[in-house]
């Protein structure tokens, strides 16, 4: 039981972050707070991928002469490459989302969901 916990405790943090992000997206009425929830959700997924790339006794994926090309001595480079692109894409997504929020504010003079729905019903 303790062995299992020590091997998997990182996933507990990832699940907690996923739940916090989902909570922010579901319950908050403010659009910017919803975006913060989305960012926390994305960060949890990044951490999950990076955590999956670790190996015990391995170092960063830059080949040095002393270690040679032994796969057991370097962590998995593939999740790093995937997440590197995903982080920049998430920044671009947040940029587009903020642009939409700004447009909504200019049109309805509010970023609160209830106010916007009331204004749209008029």
């Amino acid at each position: 039981m303790l062995e299992t916990f020590l091997g998997r405790y990182v996933y507990a943090f990832v699940v907690a972050l996923l739940a916090i992000g989902l909570y922010g997206m579901l319950t908050k009425r403010n659009l910017v707070k919803k975006l913060i929830g989305m960012t926390i959700f994305q960060t949890a997924i990044f951490l999950f991928f990076i955590e999956g790339s670790t190996k015990m006794g391995a170092t960063v994926p830059v080949i040095v002469a002393e270690l040679g090309s032994d796969p057991a001595r370097y962590v998995n480079p593939l999740p790093h490459a995937l997440i590197l692109t995903a982080i920049v894409v998430s920044v671009a997504t947040i940029g587009v989302a903020l642009a939409l929020v700004l447009k909504i504010y200019r049109t309805y003079q509010s970023i609160d969901e209830d106010d916007i729905l009331k204004e749209m019903g008029k």
Partner: peptide
């Protein structure tokens, strides 16, 4: 488990990349 060198993600294509 965390840091398992035999995890599926670490044995499929990534050793080829490293080598």
């Amino acid at each position: 488990d965390r840091g398992d060198p035999a995890a599926p993600a670490n044995v499929y294509v990534s050793p080829d990349y490293i080598e």
